[in-house]
């Protein structure tokens, strides 16, 4: 559905009186998001995940590289057709509070884009109304309850469902979920993830899941690919469980090591990796971008920048000169070690 070939994006560096250092947000990212499939991007804040999502939704332009949506290269299209094509990619924002206009009711939020859609499909006003009700039901909201409400009276979880319903008004092929559960109450998070899963299986919507919560990515797209971004570069990617269970790149290993262990339910992994320094985005090394923080860096790491190469399993690739697989994530304890309370 979406194919990215070597897309790059650099911010700043415009010069002027107070010239700023250019910051590379994306350095030649390739990935393929199949129809109905899922691709997850993980990484620290500032790794370029959000920029990637914004580019896919047409809110930013790439500096170089190709972005193909449904097989068509966006750059070759005239502005109008590009906008129409990009409409098939919709964003689910991180913050459901700022993603909804406080002055528009739930009905207006859905019916405005639906009215446009109705004109395309040559449908009438009653189609708009019934479709709004249908979409609310699809995302698990009670239409009778919320149609005439303003967003501020809804809970975070309900708002996020509404944001998803709004994205569905244009019958998109792709949903880009950028930290879509980070600001939702924990007891409601899984509900949102389950909804994304359901949209994948029932509507065939592809999901690009941007997160720092690896387990959430695993829940939405266990059958998909996991991409690890570091300072705009894909340092490792592969099938979700392959990357989680035998990460090759030390950065991936650091990310996975940082996941808290549910003591009592999970057994911590024997090995843990932590970066030896903080992120210094201003420094642009000639060699591996991670070398200055890498606990396993060797002398040659600072000299040449590694590109993606194949790991043992098919489809699992990493960009490390001295890879060593490590098992760093916790494993569940046997279920029988968990006695239950009275029935």
């Amino acid at each position: 559905m979406i194919e990215a070939r070597g897309i790059t994006k650099t911010f700043g560096g415009r010069g002027g009186l107070l010239g700023t250092q250019p910051v590379a947000a994306l350095r030649g990212v390739d990935f393929v998001l199949p129809s109905g499939g899922a691709v997850s991007f993980i990484g620290e804040s500032g790794c370029g995940k959000t920029t990637l999502g914004r580019i896919l939704c047409g809110m930013e332009q790439v500096d170089s590289g190709q972005l193909l949506v449904g097989g068509t290269d966006l750059a070759r299209l005239p502005q109008r057709e590009r906008a129409a094509l990009l409409r098939r990619v919709q964003m689910v924002h991180q913050d459901p509070y700022s993603a909804l206009n406080p002055t528009r009711t739930v009905r207006q939020v859905l019916e405005d884009p639906l009215a446009l859609r109705a004109r395309q499909l040559r449908r009438g006003r009653d189609w708009v109304e019934s479709r709004a009700v249908e979409l609310l039901g699809l995302v698990g909201l009670d239409p009778a309850y919320c149609l005439s409400l303003y967003p501020h009276t809804l809970s975070g979880g309900m708002r996020q469902r509404l944001v998803i319903a709004r994205a569905l008004t244009v019958d998109p092929d792709v949903l880009v979920a950028d930290e879509a559960i980070a600001m939702i109450d924990v007891s409601l998070r899984l509900g949102i993830l389950a909804l994304l899963r359901q949209l994948r299986s029932e509507l065939g919507v592809s999901v690009l899941f941007i997160t720092h919560d690896v387990a959430a990515a695993r829940y939405v797209g266990a059958d998909g690919q996991l991409y690890v971004l570091y300072r705009g570069q894909v340092v490792e990617h592969g099938p979700v469980d392959a990357v989680i269970s035998s990460p090759m790149h030390p950065y991936t290993q650091c990310l996975l090591s940082a996941i808290p262990v549910l003591r009592g339910l999970e057994e911590p992994a024997a090995e843990q990796l932590m970066p030896i320094a903080g992120l210094d985005a201003g420094h642009e090394p000639p060699g591996c971008l991670f070398a200055d923080r890498c606990p396993n860096a060797e002398d040659d790491c600072a000299l040449s920048r590694p590109t993606l190469r194949d790991a043992k399993e098919p489809g699992h690739r990493h960009a490390c000169l001295h890879p060593r697989p490590r098992q760093v994530v916790a494993v569940p304890l046997a279920p029988d070690a968990r006695p239950s309370g009275p029935p």
Binding site: C57, M59, L86, M91, D95, A99, N101, P113, V163, R166
Partner: peptide, 13 residues
């Protein structure tokens, strides 16, 4: 720059 305005734009309004 608010997400809801960006969303309106990307919905084609």
């Amino acid at each position: 720059e608010r997400p809801y305005i960006e969303a309106s734009r990307s919905l084609g309004l």
